[in-house]
Amino acid sequence: MRAFFAVDLPTDLADRIAEVQGELRAAEGLRFTDPEQAHITLEFLGDVPDGSERGGGGESDLDAVIEAGREAVQEADVEPFIASVRGLGAFPSTEYIRVVWAGIGDGSAELTRLQAGIESRTTALGYEPDDHEFTPHVTLARMDDARGKGIVQEAIRTAEADVGSFTVEAVRLKRSTLTESGPVYETVESFPLSS
């Protein structure tokens, strides 16, 4: 299964995510994410064999990944915290746009600490670390071609894009299932923060 560690945004911010995406709707070449599934990815793992894919028997890679996530969150010793979602940006740059995102203000340090612990543990299991510095963000859209690049660049420069704040209380291991209408995410395991 395709899997990643993430912090989910509460569904009550979905309407605000949709409003921010609305400021980009005129840009051709964008594929928008589902506001109801908005999240902050901490670590993308890719394919994680879950035991059933090998006929079972013994500890699966999934069991090891769950244990790594549990230990990383405990060791990070991060208490529940407020994260604010605001501002727009693009990866890899505003000149060559592949992903349009909303940034994280408050809570960046805590998210970075959680991500570093998870990456360290999953790398020890043989999963590839990210090839770029971690930038906490919420993906709003992916750019398939550059037709709407100017509109996106202008929005990044001028849009308020203040989505709101929420309390982060847990990290989740998510399963990503690709469908014709886009990816569907399900929680496999949840790791509560220290309290």
Rank of each mutant, 00 (worst) to 15 (best):
M1H: 13
A3V: 06
F4T: 05
A6G: 09
D8C: 03
P10C: 08
D12L: 09
R16A: 12
E19R: 15
G22V: 07
A27C: 10
G29H: 02
G29L: 04
T33A: 12
Q37H: 07
E43T: 05
F44C: 09
D47M: 00
G51P: 12
S60G: 08
D61C: 09
D63P: 11
G69N: 06
R70W: 03
R70F: 01
R70N: 06
A72N: 00
D77E: 15
V78R: 10
I82R: 15
A83Y: 09
A83R: 11
S84D: 14
R86A: 14
G89S: 12
A90V: 03
A90K: 08
S93C: 07
S93H: 08
T94A: 07
Y96N: 01
V100F: 02
W101P: 07
W101D: 05
W101E: 00
G105Q: 10
S108R: 07
A109M: 02
A109E: 15
T112C: 08
L114C: 10
A116I: 01
S120D: 14
T123A: 15
D130P: 03
E133F: 03
F134K: 04
F134Q: 01
F134H: 14
A141F: 01
R142V: 07
G148P: 06
K149S: 12
G150S: 12
V152Q: 06
V152D: 03
E154N: 14
A155P: 04
E160G: 04
E160T: 15
E160L: 11
S165A: 13
F166L: 06
T167E: 13
E169H: 05
A170N: 01
R172I: 00
R172C: 04
R172Q: 10
L173H: 08
L173P: 02
K174Q: 13
R175I: 00
T177V: 10
E180A: 13
S181K: 08
S181E: 13
P183E: 00
V184T: 09
T187R: 10
V188L: 13
F191L: 08
P192Q: 08
P192W: 05
S194R: 15
